[in-house]
Nucleic acid binder design. Structure first.
Lengths: 122, 122
DNA sequence: CTCCTGAGTTTCCATTGGAAACCTTCTTTC
DNA sequence: GAAAGAAGGTTTCCAATGGAAACTCAGGAG
């Protein structure tokens, strides 16, 4: 089965979706949302280094694309929970693998960098 | 088994690797390099819309991290081939899944966007 | 001579990203 | 009753990144 879409094509709408996923913050957010829903400030604390602006922007884009859902609860102060949608859940395994690949292969990457830099300096 | 690295931590070196992978051009390049080695201008033509500057920069970074290899052949004009390294090959399945997820789910994403935009306009 | 190809580098401008301050509503603390 | 705090953002500003296009260099081909 072939698809009408081709991510190698400029101007294909899939490119826009790829740009959404090919973002370090988006990947970390999707990874973090596996499991129970998480509140805004909880995400902000867990994903160290993300700014509120970028977190807010990224959540909005992921919600628009149907990957996550946003639920508001009328508590005081108001509580907002984010969670993966069924569509977002289809990405969970892939995102987890990619986001954590670095943790498993960091030593190999560091060794490669050292070799490369040594050769470049020579 | 746990790892010394944690991609949720700011300042963890894995963050740098995640930033490398979380890039639309890097993903498309890695995906395209599955299979036989590919030359610079061939990549440029296949990955529509990439500029020479960004292609060159991205290839250099991926090479430094040990994910791809660069081979120069003394033809005229000189030929340069890029290929996945064994380390890069460990990412092949994940990258392919992520890069092509949009192709398989584009209709669902477009529907979600339409719903979101309609609700926002109301 | 001039043009063409492969593999880049350089230049320039527009968009994006991060840091930090600000906003709003309600509650608790002094 | 003034101030501070928590939740969930928005706004502002500057620096870094991204894309478009031109330029480089070497060696053929016409």
């Amino acid at each position: 089965m072939t698809y009408a879409y081709d991510v190698y094509e400029d101007r294909c709408p899939t490119r826009l979706v790829l740009e959404r996923l090919a973002d370090k913050w988006a990947l970390l957010i999707l990874d973090r949302l596996e499991g129970d829903p998480v509140r805004f400030n909880h995400l902000r604390r867990d994903i160290k280094g993300i700014s509120q602006k970028v977190l807010s922007q990224t959540l909005k884009k992921l919600e628009r694309d149907g990957l996550i859902s946003r639920s508001v609860f009328a508590t005081v102060p108001v509580t907002v929970e984010y969670a993966l949608t069924p569509l977002g859940r289809t990405l969970a395994d892939t995102v987890r693998t990619l986001a954590h690949w670095a943790e498993h292969n960091m030593d190999a990457v560091l060794a490669a960098q050292a070799t490369y830099d040594a050769a470049a300096a020579a």
